[in-house]
Design a protein around this nucleic acid. Structure first.
Lengths: 339, 339
DNA sequence: GGGTTGTAGTGAAACGTTTCACAGGTGGCA
DNA sequence: TGCCACCTGTGAAACGTTTCACTACAACCC
């Protein structure tokens, strides 16, 4: 019941309080005999360090937090696992928080993480643009690494995948397969990744010799459900106006579109080809195996954590870096009509 | 840079340290004029509470932790979201930790969470059975709620879904559809859920009038990959010996089996029917929409969090409860050959 | 033997809160 | 006027660590 503290351990072992602390933190300063006495006392009393006190005194925590947009999006779970590996190897602990793409929940989480004085923060903010809230972290000495957002900010590191390049890959592939009316499904367009992927696709098509059309189908979110709704829209168009291929801003949307089109009796890829984005594990297991733009997700998490820890160690003279990874197109049946 | 503390705020506002604390914690004790002065000082200095100190003094945290087996398993992400909603409504914060089904990582996470003196712990332990490690939490006054594990333990609450009933549902369904040679794909069998689902299925078949066979295909894990390997085993059997239906311990396995069988040229459900477990979002989007046993996942998380908070409040006179939810069978194409 | 060096262990101070007994001041009431 | 009650605000104590200046003692060297 009563949580034993260092003082009780000291008394029980017949040594001073400072000695117990030394056993815990610098065991080499203590003679083996004394050390053993202390360790025995610790076991006997079931003593466990109080991290609050330790942290209060030390002024720093060994906990790194990652605040993601959606815990149930496989993209983020892989990023988390990459980051986890690095943080744990460094002897720290990674805690995962979820904003659910809700600015208020993001705010709340940031508030509590700042109060906790976490060692550092990996975050994908809900909105792109300026983040005074994150500047507060930096000012307080808590390094922040942006994940898949806001590359190039002068006062923090960032890791991202080149979404413009990803958009290009997808559109070029579809154009090469002979598609001339192409749709882009994604939204909200305020999300930078969505906008970038769209711009990349548009740019790729504009670079082509022959004219290509890129019709925008805006969705309220990046979910399977939103994809189904977009499919309804697509199905409602006359065959001559309907895009013969769509590029979706992520795989959840793509799976939704696939399901929706199938429900409407449209065939993939014969009537409409689909390319998704993220290459989640289930992309290959979809009703029609899904072509997708693959991002090095775990790598993203690993690098983000490494940058964070590096900044956290090199107090003072740290150069912020912006790492950009290149995506890769994985072609499967959903876009392979002409192969 | 220098994180402002309460003392500096007090000085800046021209009041005493205790008054600032009162403004923060019991604003009604402070006159409006003074309160405003203090609030202004707080804003001006960018003061943010130090949770370590607060927690040290208070002896308790407002952070609830959930330690899951696999952050990237959709089952757990839904449980997390359910728990999140409840904890946040209560003004707390939920942090997610991942054991990755590795006992050593579980151990490490538990160590750090105990040091942090979290308010409570929702956990799905890697191994079933006795958990002296968790008893330590309870002894220290940190309530523990088991999620989908170890129902009936006298010193902690638990929430679970009736896996035996789930197994029965699946097997009865397949038997009714006329299958007599049925396979069970799952493992390791040391995982209680796997064993329960198997037992439920076996029991349902034993209750039948006509003899039914339940052949066990053990897998090393509950992943898509393991499912693919199980499919190889199935495909290698002669058609007359091969089960005409398999019940998989979870949907990841089922998707893997589906993929693997298809790759071997076997048709689902014509050659082999499949029933999965969990009804993850992608079950319906699989190459062949997957029949599955659905668990009330978010409900599980919500209830777990509610039990935890209740125990945390009602210090002393709390009755541990064990809530068992009933699963539900969702029939889709993968098992619907005779419909 | 005096001085130096090194090793083991000590205990007070400090980290930033919250709480609590208490002090000053104001107004009401007899 | 004297007493009491009430409202605001005060500042010291306590939470459990880590750190650091310090003591005690032994060993070594000249």
């Amino acid at each position: 019941m009563a949580a034993a503290n260092i003082k009780q351990v000291a008394k029980h072992a017949g040594v001073s309080l400072g000695t117990v602390s030394n056993v815990l933190n610098r065991p080499d300063l203590v003679s083996p005999a004394t050390r053993q006495k202390v360790l025995d006392a610790i076991t006997e009393l079931g003593y466990v360090r109080n991290d609050s006190a330790r942290q209060l005194r030390a002024g720093r925590s060994r906990t790194v937090a990652i605040l993601v947009l959606d815990v149930s999006n496989p993209f983020f779970t892989d990023v988390v696992r990459g980051a986890e590996a690095v943080v744990e190897k460094a002897g720290g602990m990674l805690i995962v928080c979820n904003s659910g793409e809700d600015p208020r929940r993001e705010q709340r989480n940031l508030d509590m993480l700042e109060e906790q004085r976490v060692q550092g923060l990996l975050v994908t903010p809900v909105s792109d643009g300026r983040h005074p809230r994150l500047d507060a972290f930096v000012k307080r000495g808590i390094p922040v690494v942006l994940v898949d957002r806001g590359s190039g900010h002068p006062s923090r590191c960032s890791v991202a995948v080149d979404d413009v390049a990803g958009g290009r890959l997808a559109a070029e592939h579809l154009a090469e397969r002979g598609h001339e009316r192409i749709g882009f499904v994604g939204g909200p367009v305020t999300i930078r990744q969505v906008a970038d992927r769209h711009h990349g696709a548009a740019a790729a098509l504009a670079d082509r010799d022959t004219p290509h059309d890129l019709q925008l189908f805006t969705t309220p979110s990046l979910s399977v459900d939103a994809g189904r709704q977009a499919a309804d829209e697509l199905a409602a168009l006359a065959a001559g106006e309907r895009p013969t291929a769509v590029f979706c801003a992520n795989d959840l949307l793509a799976l939704g579109v696939l399901q929706g089109l199938t429900a409407h009796g449209l065939r993939v890829p014969e009537d409409v080809a689909i390319v998704g984005y993220d290459d989640i594990e289930f992309a290959a297991a979809a009703a029609v195996p899904l072509s997708s733009v693959r991002q090095p997700r775990a790598q993203l998490g690993r690098t983000a954590a490494e940058l964070l820890l590096e900044e956290s160690m090199n107090d003072g003279n740290h150069q912020h870096r912006h790492v950009m990874f290149q995506p890769e197109l994985v072609i499967r049946v959903s876009s392979d009509r002409y192969r």
